[in-house]
């Protein structure tokens, strides 16, 4: 629409001014002094960071430094592990996720998860995706069909599977299975997608597909992704958190800590912590 009114012009100028000074996206997760224990063993200590809306946040760091542990606190997946215990604060849009009144089931409906190994259900492609919507009470076949198609399209899988919706999901390739799992997670319309090394079992081509897909949906979803692949973190994420295992000399125990959390570009080109630089050089160089 074109208008010549001065007010509209003023609007345009104001908008231009705003985009010149980009505002950070609103905070989705506020994590404060988060420590996680498995039984008596401390796994992660004092993690503090904010995850922002509609962008990709990457967790990197060596194996065992607690990336998965922190990620699984964001949708209370750790509740399923006997003996897992959380200290500190994790809030989602300012609601404390570990408040006794908060229902873990409701948390997981809004904060979806995709796992390291593709784990489709032993059902048809259609039923894999319809499972979540069915839980939410959607029963009509026509509604479900629409949701399934939409989810598969978002996960860029529709064209490949539209003729085999009734076939077992196990017949798909590894990359297709992982995109199916992403579609399955998207079908319940979450706000957030947590992904724990979603590409580690996939070949480079399948990985590339998933990276494209993530960048496409990042404008409408908040994504937190754990990755071992430095290149991947650098290619797709806006923010990167670098974790490391620290050895406590006194108690001779090891636990993960958050070393650095910043813009991805900054972390990879000009990290403020020496250990980040060492790790990135070691992995890339």
């Amino acid at each position: 629409m074109i208008t010549n009114s001065p007010v509209a012009e003023l609007d345009v100028i104001e908008h231009a001014g705003l985009s010149a000074l980009p505002q950070p996206n609103p905070v989705v997760f506020e994590i404060g002094n988060l420590s996680v224990f498995y039984g008596d063993a401390l796994a992660v200590k004092d993690v503090t960071m904010n995850v922002r809306e509609h962008q990709i946040t990457a967790f990197i760091g060596p194996s065992g430094c607690g990336k998965s542990t922190v990620l699984r606190c964001l949708n209370r997946m750790n509740d399923l592990i006997d003996g897992a215990r959380v200290q500190g604060m994790v809030s989602y849009h300012n609601v404390d996720l570990y408040d006794p009144a908060v229902q873990a089931v409701e948390v997981r409906r809004r904060i979806g998860m995709v796992f390291q190994k593709p784990n489709p259900f032993p059902k048809s492609v259609f039923e894999n995706i319809a499972f979540g919507p069915r839980l939410n009470g959607i029963k009509k076949k026509s509604d479900l069909s629409g949701i399934v198609e939409q989810a598969l399209r978002k996960a860029v899988l529709w064209d490949e599977v539209k003729d085999r919706l009734k076939d077992s999901a196990f017949g798909l390739s590894g990359g297709q299975q992982q995109r199916l799992c992403i579609a399955r997670a998207l079908a319940v319309e979450p706000d957030v997608l947590l992904m724990d090394e979603p590409c580690s079992a996939l070949d480079p081509i399948a990985t590339g597909r998933i990276e494209e897909l993530l960048q496409e949906i990042a404008s409408t979803y908040t994504i937190v992704i754990v990755t071992h692949n430095m290149g991947q973190a650098r290619r797709i994420s806006e923010q990167t958190a670098f974790f490391l295992t620290r050895l406590d000399e006194v108690s001779d125990s090891r636990y993960g800590v958050l070393v650095e959390y910043d813009n991805t570009e900054k972390v990879f080109t000009d990290p403020s912590d020496k250990r980040t630089l060492q790790y990135i050089m070691g992995q890339v160089g």
Partner: peptide, 25 residues
């Protein structure tokens, strides 16, 4: 497999729903 249970829990299924629709079948 535990991954199978987690897949269903991750979609917001209750324990009963996970058992009824995924684990027992």
């Amino acid at each position: 497999p535990q991954s199978h249970r987690e897949g269903a829990f991750g979609l917001g299924a209750t324990r009963w729903e996970v058992i009824r629709h995924q684990v027992i079948p």
